[in-house]
Simulated scan of single mutants.
Amino acid sequence: MTKAHSTNHSTLVFRPAQERFHSVRDWLESWHSFSFAGHHDPNWMGFGPLLVINDDTISAGRGFGMHSHHDMEIITVMIEGELQHQDSAGNSGVIQAGDVQRMSAGTGIMHSEINASAQPCRLLQIWIEPNHQGLEPAYEQRRIAITDQHWIPVLDPNNSKAMAIARPVQLWRLKLAQGKSIQLPALAYPQAWIQMINGDISISGVTNASHLALRRGDGLGFHLGRADMHQIHSSSEQTDLLLFGLG
């Protein structure tokens, strides 16, 4: 198995959905792309500064009580339903499907995440290592309007339409209709990771074969030296994915 933290220019890191770590409680089902909590594998400690991608489904009326974080950039991408956020800095509100929240834990912050609705909710929680420790905590939440067939910027320090974190990172979300194709956007940083939210895609030119297929929950890490990785093709009606550019 290829180590997920490898930065070799020729390395292509494939993380099949069914091989992710799996946690189940009576109110939470979580799939971990990288080592997390009680799941530890030295081969899967992250990809560059990208340390955590948790695909969480939280039951109605349940959630995470107050708990602490420090020196971490935490991004929550709401996929289905809604989640009530409250933190020790006085921030509170409801994160709904289509919203993205960023929280710089910095010197320390306490927060809770509760699904107060009558329906389960699904989200991706992402942790990225900041460039510096001991920063002042920060919080931001935005509604990200997703337009089919377009890369929508979520994080980008050089784009005023996107949010920024304490690390040079770009993040896009893409919804692509069945049968449609699109080229990768111009990434400013040397490493990239694709995380499938829903649907099926193929990527041309990434292996000796003509296409590499990715499905719901799959992840793919690569180095931008692979100039032949140039196009994504949707083979599903509900293709939805994230693309990270990692500095």
Rank of each mutant, 00 (worst) to 15 (best):
M1S: 15
H5F: 14
T7M: 15
H9K: 14
H9Y: 10
S23C: 01
S23I: 06
V24R: 10
D26G: 11
D26R: 14
S30Y: 00
A37H: 05
G38A: 14
H40Q: 11
M45K: 02
F47P: 01
G48C: 03
L51K: 05
V52E: 00
V52W: 03
I53P: 05
N54A: 05
N54L: 03
D55Y: 09
T57A: 08
S59R: 11
G61C: 04
R62Y: 04
H70D: 11
M72E: 05
E73G: 02
V77A: 10
I79Q: 04
S88R: 13
N91E: 09
I95K: 09
I95D: 09
S104P: 09
A105E: 04
G106I: 11
I109Y: 02
M110A: 10
S112G: 02
E113C: 00
S117K: 08
A118K: 14
L123P: 13
L124N: 15
I126V: 14
I128R: 00
I128W: 02
I128G: 00
P130V: 07
H132C: 07
G134H: 06
P137D: 00
Y139T: 05
Q141F: 06
I144L: 04
I144P: 04
I152F: 02
L155T: 12
K161A: 14
M163H: 10
A164M: 11
A166K: 06
P168D: 13
W172N: 10
R173F: 07
L174S: 02
L176K: 01
L176M: 06
G179P: 09
K180M: 12
S181C: 10
I182A: 07
A186H: 13
A186F: 12
A188I: 02
Y189V: 05
Q195G: 02
D200R: 15
I201S: 12
S202Y: 08
I203F: 07
I203N: 08
V206A: 15
A209D: 12
S210L: 15
H211K: 15
H211V: 15
L214G: 10
R215M: 03
R215C: 13
G217H: 01
G217R: 01
D218Y: 05
G219M: 09
F222I: 08
H223L: 11
H223N: 14
L224F: 07
G225Q: 11
I232G: 00
S235F: 12
L241F: 04
L241I: 00
F244V: 06
L246Y: 07
G247V: 01
